[in-house]
């Protein structure tokens, strides 16, 4: 046992990963578990190499044991999480186990939680189109197909946004693109613009209006629609810039008046 300890000390002080791992593998084979772990515990470097090795070999049980003995929960959490993500068929089930066993007190719990909710929600929608898609892609889908659903319905984009706490900017941009696809210009206006007291229009959007105009132009919005948002660009230079880009003569005139 003493010479084994010495062997490990020597390998670690050498700093060569190959030597360290080779010694650790030898010790793993020749010592009983309690002794082996006890010895490893005093050498973080050795644990690191062994854990990497186990991770590559997918020997998860052993890895979990070691990491619980030593080192951080966080690394274990993330390892388990990535492994759960890797298997498409059993992903949901594995994530649930992972959440229960490893994320109970983590600040990342909410993300794993939401990931599971998202997968379940996608299953309930039951379209192959959403398989493996992100929250934003899913949101685009609901905006395109379920925009007018009751806001408290599970298929409503508003509901999805609420569940995942989607940022307003992301929501508006996704909705804008999806609605434009259906040529739902009025809905876009309701989303982005509020009417002021005297019938004047105010921006209700967090999106930069110049980008909105350029994007709508790309999505083939008619000129009268473009005009609404063009007028809402508050910076004259930006207006000129957009007008030049889109070569809209009418708008250029508006600016110079």
């Amino acid at each position: 046992m003493e010479s084994k300890t010495e062997l490990l000390n020597e390998a670690v002080s050498l700093g060569d990963g190959n030597a360290i791992l080779t010694v650790v593998l030898f010790l793993a084979k020749s010592l009983k578990k309690t002794l082996f772990y006890q010895l490893l515990r005093s050498h973080t470097e050795a644990v690191n190499h062994y854990v990497n090795y186990l991770g590559t070999r997918m020997q998860l049980q052993e890895m979990t044991d070691i990491l619980q003995v030593k080192l951080s929960k966080i690394i274990l959490q993330m390892k388990q999480f990535s492994i759960a993500c890797q298997s498409p068929q059993k992903r949901l089930q594995k994530l649930k186990t992972c959440l229960r066993n490893h994320f109970a007190e983590s600040k990342d719990k909410i993300f794993v939680d939401n990931f599971i909710k998202l997968l379940e929600w996608q299953q309930s929608i039951g379209t192959a189109e959403l398989e493996g898609k992100s929250v934003i892609d899913s949101l685009a889908y609901t905006c395109e197909h379920h925009w007018n659903d009751n806001k408290s319905s599970a298929t409503s984009p508003y509901m999805l946004a609420q569940h995942h706490r989607i940022n307003r900017r992301q929501f508006q941009w996704v909705a804008l693109n999806a609605l434009a696809k259906n040529s739902s210009w009025n809905e876009i206006e309701t989303l982005l613009v509020t009417k002021g007291w005297l019938g004047g229009k105010r921006v209700n959007a967090i999106l930069p209006m110049d980008q909105v105009v350029i994007q709508l132009h790309k999505l083939k919005a008619p000129n009268n629609v473009l005009h609404i948002y063009f007028e809402l660009i508050d910076d004259i230079d930006k207006r000129m810039c957009v007008a030049k880009k889109l070569q809209c003569h009418k708008e250029v005139i508006d600016v110079s008046v």
């Binding site: 966080i74 690394i75 993330m78 999480f81 990535s82 993500c85 990342d108 993300f111 794993v112 939401n114 990931f115 998202l118 493996g132 898609k133 992100s134 929250v135 934003i136 995942h164 706490r165 989607i166 940022n167 992301q170």
Partner: peptide, 16 residues
């Protein structure tokens, strides 16, 4: 959170 929404929750370990 915005990143994970846009590119998928499976990217969580990237932040660690």
């Amino acid at each position: 959170s915005q990143f994970l929404h846009a590119h998928g929750y499976e990217n969580l370990p990237c932040f660690l």
